[in-house]
């Protein structure tokens, strides 16, 4: 059975490790230390936790002030609140002022499922992507989460990281192969050049499963892990488009403005590549477990396989 790991636990372990060597590393929380799986960090480094209470806007602004005075704050909050309620603070205090703040959006996408749209973040990529000077990540497995955190612990750049709630299968053999640097996409698997499936974060495993199913049907796909949505790896996307003329994107986000939009925007000027975007339609999201909802919207591996078969006809 494939190993699985909760990405939140991995981030916490890595943050403890970073804080062991750097007393400027801080976890800033808005009554979210439990849901962010940060209790081991609190036990290990109680003096490096800044609790702001249920005030997400203030957590971002205070973190910016801390960063301005030499601290390296990681702000943990549900992605829905961090990127919507606090978005002006992200734009002004973090990105515009160029503050070394890492924004960790937990339970992103549809993770909170039946808790409803208040808790879903299906617009976060669209809105953060439009803000200059903000890197955007969605780690896809434990090794990538480790590599990403080691980079973030020393990087001076503002960044937004979205993670989910469920344990994810291990897709990479080691940290080096999972994460090299911002703006460097990975080819996770390569069965051929009939189609390329582009994903990142929680949907990467689904994309990979779809590629396996397609291969069994004689359709040869490659799976591209963007690793960072910003900076976007234009070179790898060009390389993929040179090889295949059908690119399918899969994201746990609105069809508008997210990963699929980014890929389509990057490839549209070529005029030779068809991009199909799979994601959440522009309507209120149906209630259900995350798996049920993915299935309903045709975002599970079997549905993705069927769509690709149809598009290749």
């Amino acid at each position: 059975m494939t190993d699985t790991k909760k990405i939140g636990d991995v981030l916490c372990t890595e943050l403890i490790e970073a804080a062991n060597h750097d007393r400027n590393i801080l976890a800033v929380t808005s009554d979210s230390r439990g849901s962010a799986a940060l209790n081991p960090f609190v036990d290990a480094h109680p003096d490096q936790l800044v609790e702001i209470g249920i005030a997400e806007q203030n957590s971002v602004t205070v973190a910016s002030g801390l960063a301005h005075s030499g601290k390296r704050p990681f702000v943990f909050a549900p992605a829905a609140f961090l990127t919507m309620r606090s978005i002006e603070q992200v734009k002004v205090d973090v990105a515009y002022s160029n503050s070394n703040v890492k924004l960790i959006g937990i339970s992103g996408g549809n993770s909170y499922s039946v808790l409803g749209a208040t808790h879903h973040s299906l617009q976060d990529l669209a809105i953060t992507r439009a803000i200059p000077n903000l890197e955007i990540y969605m780690p896809a497995d434990e090794h990538q989460a480790q590599g990403l955190m080691r980079y973030l612990a020393t990087s001076p750049n503002p960044a937004y990281v979205r993670i989910g709630k469920v344990a994810l299968p291990t897709l990479y053999p080691n940290v080096t192969q999972a994460f090299t640097k911002p703006g460097k996409a990975n080819i996770l698997s390569n069965y051929g050049q009939d189609v390329a499936i582009v994903a990142m974060g929680e949907t990467l495993a689904i994309a990979n499963e779809a590629a396996i199913q397609l291969n069994q049907l004689g359709i040869h796909a490659q799976v591209i892990d963007l690793v960072s949505l910003k900076p976007l790896d234009q070179a790898t996307l060009n390389q993929v488009a040179d090889q295949t003329h059908l690119i399918v994107t899969l994201e746990e986000h609105s069809l508008y403005g997210g990963l699929g939009s980014a890929v389509a925007e990057a490839l549209a000027p070529r005029g030779d590549t068809k991009v199909h975007i799979i994601g959440f339609p522009d309507e209120p999201v149906i209630a259900g477990t995350q798996a049920e909802v993915f299935n309903y919207y045709g975002m599970d591996a079997t549905s993705v396989t069927e769509k690709i078969k149809h598009w290749l006809r």
Binding site: V50, Q57, T61, G65, H68, K71, V92, Y96, S97
Partner: peptide, 25 residues
């Protein structure tokens, strides 16, 4: 100039962060 401002309601929170950093250090 320490920080970019203009949108109102940010300066006190930024200052809380700076003052808190002084306490931590």
């Amino acid at each position: 100039i320490e920080m970019n401002t203009g949108s109102l309601g940010h300066g006190l929170g930024l200052s809380v962060g700076m003052a808190l950093a002084a306490k931590l250090d």
